[in-house]
């Protein structure tokens, strides 16, 4: 069994297709992400990058294909179950609890019971408080713990959302366009942060910012029209004529 688990990739997509009103947003897509791997996904607008994340996280059901996480069929589970299996997701549009303080955002995301009645009577343990403090330091928001999330800048919201994912302690992070709306300095910091995170878990990053992708320095997959166009090192992918024609060249 353990042998089997070792050989099973963390995330395994094969022959996945999904159509919206006849339009094939994902078309026979296959992708494998190993334990501890960080993968960058690039591709033109509408390539199906976000839709792919929707499928992995249970938001969209694929019409065909296999979607496995640690060998378990994700198409049989819903969003909450998949999140609890260990997949965390950052949305393209930063989504945090705007009406709560930064601290409470992290508290709600923190790994632990998801039971309604336990939430009614739950109290915070010292370990939980410590863990939140650690995360606040990682996402550089220690001084703003009591600030309402609504009052954060766009870039800070992105970081808070990444912090919430860390609090969830997932095995796989799906991060959709994390540096959109960030300054150059923030972008560099984010690349550092994600590299740090990927030391202990797998990460899939979707991004358009090529210098950011270069900073990540990981295997790159280019999607176009819902399928894999090219895969390999950044240099390999960016010199692929198909990629130049459909994405980079424009």
């Amino acid at each position: 069994m353990s042998k089997f688990l070792e050989n099973t990739p963390l995330l395994y997509l094969d022959g996945v297709s999904v159509a919206f009103d006849g339009f094939k947003a994902i078309n026979n897509l296959s992708l494998v992400v190993e334990h501890g791997e960080m993968r960058a996904i690039i591709g033109p607008n509408g390539a199906g990058k976000t839709t792919m994340m929707d499928i992995i996280t249970g938001k969209t059901r694929p019409d065909h294909g296999t979607v496995l996480f640690e060998g378990q069929d994700l198409t049989l589970h819903d969003e909450a179950q998949i999140a609890n299996m260990g997949i965390g997701r950052k949305f393209q549009k930063p989504t945090v609890f705007e009406n709560h303080s930064i601290y409470d955002n992290l508290l709600l995301a923190l790994k632990g019971s998801r039971n309604v009645f336990q939430a009614l009577f739950s109290t915070q343990s010292t370990e939980q408080k410590q863990r939140i403090d650690e995360i606040l330091a990682v996402i550089r928001l220690e001084n703003r713990r009591d600030t309402l999330a609504a009052d954060l800048s766009h870039g800070q919201k992105q970081w808070l959302e990444i912090g919430m994912l860390l609090a969830q302690d997932p095995k796989l992070l799906l991060v959709d366009e994390p540096v959109a709306g960030m300054t150059d300095a923030e972008t560099v910091e984010t690349a550092k942060l994600l590299r740090e995170i990927s030391k202990t878990r797998s990460v899939v990053v979707v991004e358009h910012d090529m210098s950011f992708i270069r900073d990540l320095d990981v295997k790159v997959t280019c999607l176009a029209e819902g399928a894999v166009l090219s895969e390999g090192s950044l240099n390999h992918v960016s010199s692929d004529p198909k990629v130049i024609e459909s994405y980079l060249g424009r």
């Binding site: 996280t57 938001k59 969003e79 909450a80 999140a83 609890n84 965390g88 997701r89 949305f91 989504t95 945090v96 609890f97 705007e98 009406n99 709560h100 409470d104 508290l107 709600l108 995301a109 998801r114 309604v116 939430a119 009614l120 009577f121 739950s122 919430m164 969830q168």
Partner: peptide
């Protein structure tokens, strides 16, 4: 309570609550 905070979270970002598990 924490549940009350979750209720307010549902009010403003239902999908985030769901994807948090």
């Amino acid at each position: 309570s924490k549940l009350g905070k979750l209720m307010q979270a549902v009010n403003h970002a239902e999908s985030r609550v769901r994807f948090t598990g």
